[in-house]
Design a protein around this nucleic acid. Structure first.
Lengths: 138, 138
DNA sequence: GCGGTTAATGCAAGTATTTGCAAATGCTAA
DNA sequence: TTAGCATTTGCAAATACTTGCATTAACCGC
């Protein structure tokens, strides 16, 4: 089966409520990174009763379990991504807003160094690194 | 070169208002990392008229110029630090909340790699890296 | 010093997210 | 099937920060 988030939730003793099922579906069907507000809009279309705080609480739970990653790309709102769909990172230009996708491996040296030198297991699964792109560095 | 934030502001054509002077003083006098609310409280003690939005706007300006760094240590509020007081980073344990200070050099390899491979000039001056510390990794 | 201009401030309303609490509901055991 | 109970939800209020706009006040030239 694919990255079965709902199955994992159930397995861990969380309740699989219709709200959670729809929130998870919204995250899975978004190829892109999706915001809480976008998830809320999608779920509400089918089930107008949901509350935005349920969306946030579900996202919090999924983050804790490690099933979704959360990234602040500097838009004033955070975006979510299913962890099972592959890890990557983003370079975000603070000048022009351009984003460059980065392979996970770019940070593996850092991760190893932190584990080796500090015994620290860094969660570097979906990072946004700010700075200036080729065009914008003066 | 001393870290004369106000002088730098003036030099760049920004107006040196009493509000800005007091906000900068609060940041400079804090040995620790200071939050917007803490700055606001300190400034208001001397000058009750200030508004919290002035604090946020001043911090935004100082960030843009590169005179202060902003770091989200996962407390639900962001902390500020004068950039002139030396660069460092933090490892933050998501389990127990412990923070480990990190020297700037730990990230210099990464910074070089990003510049070499992507032409991207990363602003890695005060980062918080989340994960699990020695005691908390299962 | 004195006014003009323009940046900076205060205020109030808005946005994104979090939290406390009572009511609803999924799951377990009988 | 249903009662029991803990988890989850909805709601409303709180928090951290941002923004639009009218007013104020730095700082420049005179």
């Amino acid at each position: 089966m694919k990255q079965d988030i709902l199955g994992k939730l159930e397995e861990l003793g969380y309740r699989v409520t219709p709200q959670r099922a729809m929130i998870v579906a919204a995250i899975n069907h978004s190829d892109d990174h999706i915001s809480a507000e976008e998830i809320y809009a999608q779920v509400r279309a089918k089930y107008p009763h949901v509350n935005i705080s349920t969306v946030y609480r579900t996202l919090e739970t999924l983050k804790e379990i490690g099933l979704v990653t959360e990234t602040d790309m500097g838009e004033g709102r955070v975006r979510y991504h299913p962890a099972g769909k592959g890890h990557h990172h983003h370079l975000v230009c603070q000048e022009c807003g351009a984003t460059i996708d980065l392979d996970e491996t770019v940070l593996s040296n850092l991760k190893d160094a932190l584990r080796r030198e500090y015994g620290f297991l860094a969660d570097l699964r979906h990072l946004a690194i700010f700075g200036h792109c080729v065009k914008c560095k003066q």
